[in-house]
Design a protein around this nucleic acid. Structure first.
Length: 461
RNA sequence: GGCCCGGUAGCAAAGUGGCCAUGCAGCGGCCUGCAAAGCCGUCCACGGCGGUUCGAUUCCGCCCCGGGCCUCCA
């Protein structure tokens, strides 16, 4: 049927056609590394990881290049490093390492390139100079500013015009700006701030130009997909696109602009400034990364998704059902083909909630199947369907034995011993003793299941 | 104020001009020594008012409510 994606440029779904059928190129805005990532920050990472998997599957002969940048030069970083009395490099290295670990725990693939802004200072200066040469930017008091009126198409991506923006009370009109909407490409640094030598003196890049530079260096002047959160459309992506297009003379910078909706926490946008966030790192102590990932995919990526502690438990239970089906079927390798229903859902603008419902339908079929060979076939199908979304690749037994951090519980030898003693009691028809042992285990968070193949156990969630 | 999204059962969340979403939770049954898991059945829906239509949760209009962006943000 072919991949369809909602393009923010036209505010509608359209068929995806790569510019180069042999090389599919995607850029996603990554983190500014000064603090732990919260679960809202993980949404684009998970969503575009699914898209990355899907692109690899849809274009098996093509190279798929996924770039996710790291912003390691920013005033928030400077402030935090100063507050911690540590070097900027120390702070950004440590935060980046943590970020990578957290994202890996969410079962996302690392991108093909993870460029750091500070390693692209030269291209940034080059683009700024080029924009000056072409009359789209000017230097003033150590700054380089992009001149918004020099670009007729400015505002097309975010759907707003210059006048509306200027009317916004939050625009800071510095005296050296030619136009109130003009924004910074390069700004001067004090001696105590990080800086690099440039034709305009020692300074550092503005917020948007790093992405233009890194995307251009790694993916070329125009590429296929540019992704990020809805809150980046304006000003970040609008400005990024403006810089790149005016520097290269081609429009747009990327053909498909994809934006994920926000995560709500208490029906308000989860954000660092509001303080209503949970970090990925702390959530990983409450639930396996796969449960966080599953929860994230229960909503369509463009819709807001309500994140609650109860919701996490519920979605972990839902994933339990899928692993339960796999466990009942015995282990089976993934099928080669992803079921059509699942592919169709994902190809329709990444409809992951619909795709997940198809996983549950397969699990139902599996649970109903009487023939072991049929069960195994369906288990393989379920694993293949899960794989395209980064789910159900783990061992079912291990899944059910996961336990939250810091919870003291019986070790596996003790549990096995108690199961043996209960088995003896059951053989002797001493059900009171058997039930007593089962209750004791239950009070320790261990749930038993007597199946035809013997007694198995799980940790209660 | 400007621009843009939403409102679907107890909860979460897809989707469709006429028939079933799906999951979690609940209820009844089957299975089980009893459970658990699973299966079968079941309850509970499309914000309000109009319009178009043989038929509207779906299309159109108005209203109400919620959210996002408007130079920190995923």
């Amino acid at each position: 049927m072919g991949l369809k994606l909602h393009n923010t440029l036209w505010r509608k779904k359209e068929e995806f056609q790569p510019l180069d059928p042999n090389h599919v190129r995607m850029y996603v805005c990554g983190p500014t590394v000064y603090d732990f990532a919260h679960i809202g920050n993980a949404r684009p990472v998970i969503v575009f990881d699914v898209l990355y998997r899907l692109l690899k599957r849809l274009y098996p002969k093509a190279k798929v290049t996924y770039v996710r940048n790291v912003t390691d030069i920013d005033d928030k970083i400077n402030d935090r490093a100063a507050a911690n009395s540590e070097t900027i490099r120390n702070l950004t290295d440590r935060t980046l390492k943590q970020y990578r670990e957290d994202m890996l725990a969410l079962l996302t693939f690392p991108p093909d390139h993870e460029p750091r802004a500070t390693e692209f200072i030269e291209p940034i200066i080059r683009i700024a100079q080029k924009l000056i040469d072409k009359g789209h930017a000017y230097a003033a008091e150590g700054h380089v500013l992009f001149n918004v009126p020099s670009m007729p198409d400015y505002g097309k991506l975010s759907g707003r015009n210059r006048d509306e923006m200027v009317a916004g009370a939050r625009v800071d009109v510095a005296p050296y700006k030619r136009d109130p909407a003009d924004f910074v490409l390069w700004k001067p640094s004090r001696d105590d701030q990080p800086g690099w030598d440039s034709p305009w003196g020692r300074g550092r890049p503005g917020w948007h130009i790093e992405c233009s530079a890194m995307a251009m260096e790694l993916l070329g002047e125009s590429f296929d997909i540019h992704g990020g959160g809805l809150d980046l459309i304006f000003p970040h992506h609008e400005n990024e696109n403006a810089q790149s297009c005016c520097a290269t003379g081609s429009w747009p910078m990327a053909r498909y602009w994809l934006h994920n909706g926000m995560l709500n926490f208490g029906s308000e946008k989860m954000s660092k400034s509001l303080g209503n966030f949970r970090t990925v790192n702390e959530l990983l102590r409450d639930a396996p990364g796969e449960a966080l990932r599953y929860y994230m995919l229960t909503g369509h990526y463009r819709q807001p998704l309500e994140w609650t502690n109860e919701g996490l438990k519920e979605q972990k239970n839902a994933l339990d059902r899928l692993y339960q089906a796999l466990q009942a079927a015995g282990d089976a390798p993934p099928a080669n083909e992803v079921p059509l229903s699942v592919m169709a859902a994902l190809e329709d603008d990444l409809n992951t909630p619909l795709a997940l419902s198809h996983l549950h339908e397969i699990a139902s079929q599996l649970n109903k199947a009487a023939d072991p060979a049929e069960k195994r076939r369906l288990a393989g199908e379920l694993r293949a369907a899960g794989a395209i979304m980064g789910l159900l690749q783990g061992d079912a037994v291990a899944w059910f034995r996961w336990q939250p951090a810091g919870v003291a519980s019986l070790d596996e030898t003790e549990i096995a011993g108690m199961i043996q003693r209960r088995l003896q009691a059951r053989k002797a028809k001493n059900f009171a003793e058997a039930d007593r042992i089962r209750d004791e285990l239950k009070s320790q968070g261990v749930v038993l299941e007597d199946t035809a193949g013997g007694t198995t156990w799980k940790r209660a969630s």
